[in-house]
Design a protein around this nucleic acid. Structure first.
Length: 436
DNA sequence: TCACCAGTGGAGGGTTCG
DNA sequence: ATCACGAACCCTCCACTG
C-alpha cells in the first residue's frame, strides 16, 4: 500500500501565445509585429496576443475595444477555432509518444503524468525538453513546460518558464522549469497569493484584508482562520496548495457535467419575437449536443444578461431528461417570459445539466420505433441530415430571420459578436425599439 | 404537537479558470 | 468607460423528509 503514495512526476505544458502562433505560420510576414486574435466587434474580447502586443498591455480576456486603444497599430485577426483545434490534436499526438496519461485543460494546455515514462525516456526535465523540441521541430510552435511532483506546482512552474513582455521589451523564457521535491516552499512562499489556483480578484480582496499577500503568509495561517474567511472547502484546499500539497490525479477523461450555449448580441434585444427566436436557436444547439453526448438533461437553465450587465439565471428540474429542441424550448421559454426584459437583453444562454433519463430509459426498455414520440424521431432525422450536409443545412423554421431566408447560425463567433457592417436601420427590432 | 436536527436536492447567485 | 464563451465548483437559502 506504500505504493499508493509513490511520488509522481507531472508536466504542465502551455503553448506560447497559441492562437497567434498558429496564425503566424500562415502569415509569416506578421512575425515580430503586435498581433491580436479574438472578437473583432465592439463587444468582443482578446483571445490571444503576441508578445509584441503584450508590451502595450494587451492580454487575453481584455475587451477588444480597449486593446485597440492601447495598441492601435496591432493587426487584429478574427480567429479560427477549428484550425486551432486541429493543431491542438497534433500537439497531443506528440504528448502521446511519452505517456497516455494526458489531461487537456484547454486547446493550448495540458497536464501529463510521466511517472511511468522516466525509465524509458529519462528524467522529467529531459522529457519536457524532448517535447519542446518535437513541438518546435514538427509544428513550428513553442511551448513552456513546468515539471513538478504535482499538478499545482507543475502549473506554477510553467508560468515561470514563459517569456515575459514589458514596455521595454521581451525577455525570452527558460522554456523548462522544475520544482524538485523538497523545494516546494522555497519556490512557492515568496509568490503572491494571487497566483494560487482559486484566488481571483474577490478572494484576493478578502485575503488582503487579513494581511495575507504572499503564499508564505497564507501557509502560516491556522486553518480555522482561513475556513471562516473563505468557507470550509476553499479554505482547506488553498491551505494545502500553499504548502505545495495537491493530491489531484491527472484525469484522462472527464465527462462534462453540463452542456450549454450562450451568445452576446451585437445590439440589445427588446422584442419578444427576437428573444423567442433566439431561445429556439440556442435550445436547438444544446439539444443537438445532448443527443451527440447521448444523454438527456433533467435540469435546464436559462441565463439572461441585461443591458446594464445585471445577470440572472432561472432553472427548472424535470422528472426525466430531455434532448430535443421543442422540449427544451417548452422548459426554458416560460422562465424567460416571467422576466421583465424592458431594460434590453444583451446575452441569452441555455444549458442542460443533471444528466440522465431518456437515453438510458430507451436502452432499458428498448421502445419499439412506432412508440417513439414524434419529436425524438424528427430529432434523429435532423441529426442525420446535419451529419451529411453540415450543421447549418437545417434548423428550426422559427430561427430563420425575417428578411433573409437563411438559417441564422453564428457558431463561429467564439469571442463575441463579429464586426457589424454599418447597420441599415430598416425595421430591425433591436435598433428601432431602443427606448431612447 | 412542537422543536430541533441531519440529510438531500433544488434554485439562484457568485467566483474562477482558460 | 468596457467586459466572450463554456464549464466547474462553491455558498446560501429553502423545502421536504424522517
Amino acid at each position: 500500500m506504500a505504493d499508493a503514495v509513490r511520488s509522481r512526476t507531472i508536466l504542465h505544458v502551455d503553448m506560447d501565445a497559441f492562437f497567434v502562433s498558429v496564425e503566424l505560420r500562415r502569415r509569416p510576414e506578421l512575425r515580430g509585429q503586435p498581433v491580436v486574435v479574438g472578437g473583432t466587434g465592439n463587444r468582443g474580447v482578446v483571445a490571444a496576443a503576441s508578445y509584441e502586443a503584450r508590451r502595450y498591455g494587451v492580454h487575453s480576456a481584455l475587451p477588444s475595444a480597449v486593446a485597440r486603444r492601447r495598441c492601435p497599430h496591432a493587426v487584429f485577426l478574427p480567429g479560427d477555432h477549428e484550425l486551432y483545434s486541429e493543431v491542438s490534436t497534433q500537439v497531443h499526438e506528440i504528448f502521446g509518444r511519452y505517456t497516455p496519461l494526458i489531461e487537456p485543460l484547454s486547446l493550448d494546455e495540458a497536464f501529463l503524468d510521466v511517472s511511468g515514462a522516466i525509465r524509458l525516456f529519462g528524467e522529467g526535465v529531459v522529457i519536457a525538453q524532448r517535447i519542446r523540441d518535437d513541438v518546435h521541430g514538427e509544428l513550428d510552435l513553442t511551448c513552456s513546460v513546468g515539471v513538478a511532483p504535482n499538478k499545482f506546482l507543475a502549473k506554477m512552474a510553467s508560468v515561470e518558464a514563459k517569456p515575459r513582455a514589458n514596455p521595454d521589451g521581451i525577455e525570452p523564457g527558460a522554456g523548462v522549469v522544475e520544482v524538485r521535491p523538497g523545494e516546494e516552499t522555497t519556490f512557492l512562499h515568496p509568490l503572491s497569493v494571487r497566483r494560487l489556483w482559486g484566488v481571483g480578484p474577490k478572494t484576493y480582496e478578502k485575503l488582503d484584508r487579513i494581511g495575507v499577500r504572499t503564499i508564505g503568509d497564507l501557509s502560516a495561517l491556522p486553518e480555522s482562520t482561513l475556513v471562516s474567511a473563505l468557507g470550509p472547502s476553499s479554505g482547506h484546499h488553498l491551505l494545502a496548495l500553499s504548502k505545495g500539497i495537491d493530491g489531484r490525479p491527472v484525469e484522462v477523461e472527464r465527462d462534462p457535467k453540463s452542456i450549454g450555449h450562450e451568445e452576446t448580441y451585437p445590439h440589445d434585444l427588446y422584442e419578444w419575437a427576437d428573444l423567442d427566436r433566439e431561445i429556439v436557436r440556442l435550445s436547438d444547439a444544446v439539444a443537438a449536443r445532448l443527443r451527440k453526448f447521448g444523454s438527456g438533461a433533467k435540469t435546464l437553465t436559462l441565463k439572461v444578461r441585461f443591458a446594464g450587465f445585471r445577470t440572472v439565471t432561472r432553472s427548472v428540474t424535470l422528472p426525466a431528461g430531455i434532448d430535443t429542441a421543442p422540449e427544451i424550448v417548452a422548459a426554458v421559454q416560460p422562465l424567460l417570459h416571467a422576466l421583465d426584459v424592458s431594460p434590453g437583453v444583451r446575452l441569452l444562454g441555455v444549458s442542460g445539466s443533471n444528466f440522465g433519463g431518456r437515453s438510458e430509459q430507451l436502452d432499458l426498455f428498448s421502445a419499439a420505433p412506432e412508440e417513439t414520440p414524434d419529436v425524438q424521431r424528427s430529432a434523429a432525422a435532423i441529426d442525420q441530415i446535419r451529419e451529411k450536409f453540415g450543421a447549418a443545412s437545417i434548423g428550426p423554421a422559427s430561427s430563420i430571420s425575417g428578411d433573409k431566408l437563411r438559417v441564422v447560425r453564428r457558431g463561429a463567433q467564439q469571442w463575441g459578436p463579429d464586426q457589424q457592417p454599418d447597420h441599415t436601420r430598416s425595421g430591425d427590432a433591436d435598433v428601432t425599439n431602443d427606448p431612447n
